[in-house]
């Protein structure tokens, strides 16, 4: 295995170039859908719920939605997106015929996945700010949370992409891992209402920590404790990143 180099940025640039060409058709995914979920849940369900932890239900779930869609953005990019580039377009094959190695390609893809998470979170943040749902200057922490969440999920997704036999297998990843995660990470309700055991399990989920940071940031309730969340995301991301490099080399270099 070779170490990823600065050349990973060329792959990041390539993915960014594609995004700049196609962002109009992708905007529905990274902005439209979360806003629908937010409106439906916030206003619809919110009318029955009233306050959660001293906030309107809409204000409570808004940060959760930001973190969850950072997760979705990175995950889609590094599953379906990367898989198509790898197997259908054979883009990886074209790139590793140049001075780039597999590790550069995968690192670049993961960086781009994290960037997608950041773009998604920033777009939502702007919309929420327009509607007066961003109460504190601590909102500057949102991009940090989005990048760490994105890095963790881009890396985890890439591990999965390295081992799937075909594109349909991603259904398992989303229906059994990603979607359930969005329900057990404090996006839609506080974890404190769950049984203790489930709370512990939920704590291990990376998304829980993304949600924690974004929620604290939007409320202006930043504490040093948030560092733990960021570090946990970083640790999960780093382990998955390393694993993705190893497994991808095994898959692509024969």
């Amino acid at each position: 295995m070779s170490r990823p180099s600065y050349r990973a940025w060329f792959v990041w640039q390539r993915d960014g170039d594609v995004f700049l060409r196609l962002w109009r058709s992708e905007a529905a995914g990274f902005l439209g859908e979360p806003l629908f979920v937010l409106a439906a849940m916030g206003f619809g369900l919110g009318a029955y719920i009233g306050q959660v932890n001293g906030q309107s239900y809409l204000s409570f779930i808004a940060p959760g939605i930001i973190a969850a869609y950072a997760m979705f953005g990175a995950s889609f990019e590094c599953t379906y997106g990367s898989f198509i580039r790898m197997e259908v377009q054979r883009t990886f094959e074209a790139i590793i015929a140049t001075p780039l190695e597999v590790e550069d390609v995968i690192a670049g893809e993961i960086l781009w996945g994290a960037t997608r998470a950041l773009l998604s979170a920033m777009a939502l943040l702007v919309v929420l700010a327009v509607f007066g749902l961003v109460a504190s200057p601590w909102a500057v922490l949102v991009p940090v949370a989005a990048v760490f969440t994105g890095f963790a999920f881009a890396s985890i997704s890439m591990v999965f992409t390295a081992i799937v036999p075909g594109i349909n297998t991603f259904n398992y990843y989303f229906t059994l891992f990603i979607t359930p995660m969005s329900f057990f990470s404090g996006v839609f309700f506080p974890l404190s209402g769950l049984p203790k055991v489930v709370q512990w399990l939920a704590w291990a989920l990376p998304l829980t920590h993304g949600v924690n940071v974004v929620r604290a940031a939007l409320r202006g309730a930043a504490t040093w404790g948030l560092l733990v969340d960021v570090v946990w995301l970083g640790v999960v991301g780093a382990v998955a990143f390393w694993l993705a490099l190893v497994l991808m080399r095994r898959r692509l270099i024969k």
Binding site: Q13, R14, L22, A94, I95, A97, L100
Partner: peptide, 27 residues
């Protein structure tokens, strides 16, 4: 090396020129 693989692996999302410009970055 200049490598021409058996199966075409161009970037379908780019124009002809941009395919080359992006590839040049790798070098």
């Amino acid at each position: 090396l200049g490598v021409v693989p058996q199966e075409n692996n161009l970037d379908p999302d780019f124009t002809v020129l941009h395919n080359l410009v992006v590839y040049a970055r790798y070098f």
